[in-house]
């Protein structure tokens, strides 16, 4: 029972990381209709940057925030390259983000090498109903809850959130009412970068990351985001938590090596199920 609880909570924490990554995908897709395959890179860049800043002597908190800002800048850069030219289609932008993800590998290896790295998070663990749970898990869960609440308020209750949503809903009409759709898309990319970066900074103490960790992250984040048609943060959160817990159970009771397989299988199952419905993703590929 205590094992189960331990797997459950660490699974929820990892799932929250996936959810943050997925929320970045959702934010970018919602505004620009671009599926950003460079999303995992934001997490990797932020995780590795935070580690470097901490070893350079920056205090906790500051290092993490700076790393998230760096990821936001990376997001802006990806947005500029992928969507900066007027009239770029969402599909060609998707291919550009995929390419940028691979370019980032080279840059990351140049800066940080190719070994997995980690940095200390909130150290120690607490005993909780007989299970030992890393404090970092609670931090991840707490931050995710706050971020999702803020996202909900932003998109549903604030005027700029409405303007951002208007771009995705009808870019043609959005331009007619004076919204600079390209610029709003860049805002979304920067925000998506920061969300991905937050995931990276929080997950790295639990799962050491290297340049190619983005595959695991994007696989899970994408699977979760697809559950909400790439447009709704709520279902993405639910999907990410299911994935996180399922993988923690597989790793705990069977074999850690199988957990990516589980993620991929679940993602395929979700996509096959979703493709029988009319989803944003389907519209994307049909256009």
């Amino acid at each position: 029972m205590s094992d189960f609880l331990q797997y459950l909570i660490s699974g929820l924490a990892v799932g929250c990381g996936f959810a943050l990554l997925a929320s970045g995908l959702v934010t970018i897709h919602r505004v620009t209709r671009v599926v950003n395959f460079a999303q995992g890179m934001f997490a990797v860049v932020a995780g590795l940057t935070a580690g470097s800043l901490l070893s350079a002597g920056l205090p906790h908190g500051l290092a993490e925030v700076a790393a998230v800002a760096v990821a936001g800048a990376a997001g802006l850069l990806v947005g500029l390259i992928a969507t900066g030219r007027r009239g770029t289609s969402a599909q060609s932008a998707l291919i550009v983000t995929l390419g940028l993800g691979f370019v980032a590998y080279a840059v990351e290896i140049m800066i940080w090498g190719d070994n997995p790295r980690s940095h200390p998070g909130l150290g120690g663990s607490v005993q909780f109903a007989g299970a030992f749970v890393q404090k970092q898990s609670f931090l991840v869960i707490g931050v995710t809850a706050v971020v999702f609440a803020a996202l909900w308020l932003f998109f549903n209750r604030s005027y700029p959130g409405k303007a951002l949503s208007a771009c995705a809903s009808n870019p043609y009409a959005a331009r007619a009412v004076g919204i600079d759709v390209t610029r709003m898309g860049l805002v979304a990319f920067a925000l998506g970068g920061m969300l991905g970066g937050t995931a990276g900074v929080l997950l790295t103490p639990m799962l050491p990351i290297s340049y190619n960790s983005d595959v695991l992250l994007i696989t899970n984040g994408f699977a979760a985001a697809v559950l909400g048609g790439l447009n709704r943060p709520g279902p993405a959160l639910a999907g990410a938590l299911v994935l996180g817990v399922a993988e923690a159970m597989v790793a705990g009771y069977y074999e850690a090596a199988y957990q990516t397989v589980v993620a991929l299988a679940l993602m395929l199952a979700i996509m096959i199920w979703q493709s029988s419905r009319r989803t944003a993703l389907q519209e994307e590929t049909a256009r």
């Binding site: 005027y159 409405k162 949503s165 009808n170 043609y172 959005a174």
Partner: peptide, 16 residues
């Protein structure tokens, strides 16, 4: 050419 997922009032407000 309206903004889906928003109320009529919100659509008009975005017009401003």
């Amino acid at each position: 050419r309206l903004f889906g997922g928003m109320t009529a009032l919100e659509n008009v407000m975005v017009g401003a």
